[in-house]
Amino acid sequence: MVSQVRGMRKRRAGVRSAPAYRGDKRWAYLLLLPSFAGLVLFYLWPAVKTLYLSFTNVGPFGGSTWTGLSNYTALVHDDKFVRSMVNTVLYAGVVVVVGIPLAIAIAALLNTSGLRGKTFYRTLYFLPVVTMPAAVGMVWQWLYNGDYGLINYLLSVVGIGGPRWLTTAPLALFAIAVVGIWMGLGNNIIILLAGLQGIPKELYEAADVDGASRFTQFRKITVPMLSPSIFFVTVLSVINTLQVFDLLFLMMSKTNPALPETETIVYLFYERAFVDNQRGAAAAVSFVLFVLMLIITAVQFRLQRKWVHYA
């Protein structure tokens, strides 16, 4: 995918001689106007405004006073915030580290040549992707229910007393991560499948001739050839999981004793901005998340040189 986009750009760069027609300029600005006006009003301006707000103290009636870096320095000593950072990174880590290898494995199995029922499997794996996250949260809260939930019942059948998944401190975060993996799997599989289908069959045929086992083929052909797609899926998953909110909001009630060890950055942001009305402090929280996302993404782009092969 990424490589495709690159290829597209390269091709264009050579041909970019499209003549400029007279009178186009005015039309260009006119046709761009609706989109650009919306972009400025609802995206660019709010982004700048949030940055400004993060350096201020916003009063209950909207007036704001400049307080310099104090919102940010306060975050350093804010246990709740530090905890939410840890929770978020942990959540994203679990979902990505478990979810992506799982998606690769399933995509590779689905790509078996001559396999029947591909469409059938693809549909089922994709179902959670189109399901409303709020509904997903409700259903899994029910599945995880300590007394009447299906999961603990199935565990009791084999003689295990299941825990209270969503109210026990370190466990709840992982329980929610399982839901995150379940929900994102189909999306990742689709992108990886597209990448897999781009790998030339001849490579496998040649390896067959050389007598390489299927596992060796997977390691030496599939993974390197798929690495651009894997990289792409990883970058997207990290960005998405760092912003998790919906699942938490539906699965963790405000009175849940495990909430402090589960609360993510966006959840904390929502609370501060729209429940506690601490706009300036909340703006700082959201900006820190933005910077965190930029850093993690930049690091990934840097590391890709070590393991991503662009054909």
Partner: peptide, 9 residues
């Protein structure tokens, strides 16, 4: 830009 950065404004 992540969506939640824009919510307050």
């Amino acid at each position: 830009i992540p969506g939640q950065l824009l919510l307050i404004p």
